[in-house]
Design a protein around this nucleic acid. Sequence first.
DNA 1: TATACGAAAATCGTATACGAAGCCGGGGAA
DNA 2: TTCCCCGGCTTCGTATACGATTTTCGTATA
Lengths: 240, 240
Amino acid sequence: MSAPARSAADTSAVSPALSKSQLAYEWLHERIVSGTLAPGARLVLAQVATELEVSVVPVREAVRRLEAEGLVTFEKNVGATVAGIDPVEYLYTMQTLSLVEGAATALSAPAVGHQDLAAAREVNTRMRAMVADFPDSFDPVQFTQLNHDFHSVLFEHCPNPHILDLVHRGWNRLTALRGSTFSFVPERASESVEEHEELLRLIESGAPTSEIEIAARRHRSATLDAYLARTDAHPNFPNL
Amino acid sequence: MSAPARSAADTSAVSPALSKSQLAYEWLHERIVSGTLAPGARLVLAQVATELEVSVVPVREAVRRLEAEGLVTFEKNVGATVAGIDPVEYLYTMQTLSLVEGAATALSAPAVGHQDLAAAREVNTRMRAMVADFPDSFDPVQFTQLNHDFHSVLFEHCPNPHILDLVHRGWNRLTALRGSTFSFVPERASESVEEHEELLRLIESGAPTSEIEIAARRHRSATLDAYLARTDAHPNFPNL
DNA sequence: TATACGAAAATCGTATACGAAGCCGGGGAA
DNA sequence: TTCCCCGGCTTCGTATACGATTTTCGTATA
């Protein structure tokens, strides 16, 4: 348990702490979520292994982890590909996120302080500015990024790590298939900004947990509904 | 996709369909959930590999999957052990399950038919019988099993596979650390049976989704609260 | 007796190697 | 021309091997 002072410049002492499989996981994860690896891109184990200068075994392990998170699909004897945009999958993911994010936001609320609220307001102001000159300089990807920043502040204090992890997974999944909702339904952006204000008011005023949960859930459900209304892909999908 | 009639005794034709890693996963999963491998039991990769007559690589992969589900813990350069009963973990798991099971039950409700309800009632009757001669022939493990059967009927029709999967994981986790709640708080059993009746009434009468969700969630939350009240481990854990 | 040290054993992490299963393209027959 | 079959190529799945790390246990010393 001793903590021998690790010299600050000693990078070679840091890397062995990370297993190669972990390295491969983070490398791939970052590239998928950031969009460097587009949905549908083929992941050849040997290829990735060569690029990372490791063997295929750790890569394989990393890919399986990503598969468990829904970021890649892995078919036996065929190979792995970055998970694509399946409308039904999108729908399931949004609904699940609506559920867990609502809960995380509610559980997080008591721990959200003034600084957090201020930070969130600041972000929302930027979002409002983007909406203002819609559709000229409206960039769905950047808007989605801000949206993520905003909600992060509100759910990150969730004391239940399981729920928080589920929220992260949901966001990752949506971010990976970017051009998520605000690409499909840009009109939703302006409504979203207003609902953010409402959400902030609720949290600031110390509203009951249940109310915050409902508001946060509705906020996301509404986005999903807007998507469903536009695509009319699954007109009567049961929602919460 | 053709389904050539596989002769019942031809085991050699079945195994090639299952990858060894899948085999190892199922083997371990079954043993953990069924309690054959008790919490805290050490899982030595080479040992398991020998027993299953495969190499360590597939076993390793299986163990990592189980780790992702929370059924085993896997420490770098140390090894894997069957996940044990950490009170805090129990608490997190119960809360998460309360959330996802509530949603799954609500989403499932419209698809629950007369036969399902009858089956659930039958199970609950057996549970009531066990409670009747409490504490004489009351077996927490068996009661938990019936409890699982009961709820299965009510959430298995959930149309969202993500949520359903989360429910399964939660149950597996609780089942693995058996002697779950009803061992700690056996008094809760009788209340539970009554709440089951209430839940059945709601579903049968076609109550709104939101009501069913709240009822199902409360049902589990109440169990958690009873546990917390008895153990006073975390008196003011924020709950939903 | 208790503690500190060190070597041996156990176990993991990864590399390499090879067999197996799917995909692709050429050649022959209808 | 079109279809089908077969051979080679690609990629995965698993076995085996070996270095790295941790744990354990015996031994010496205060």
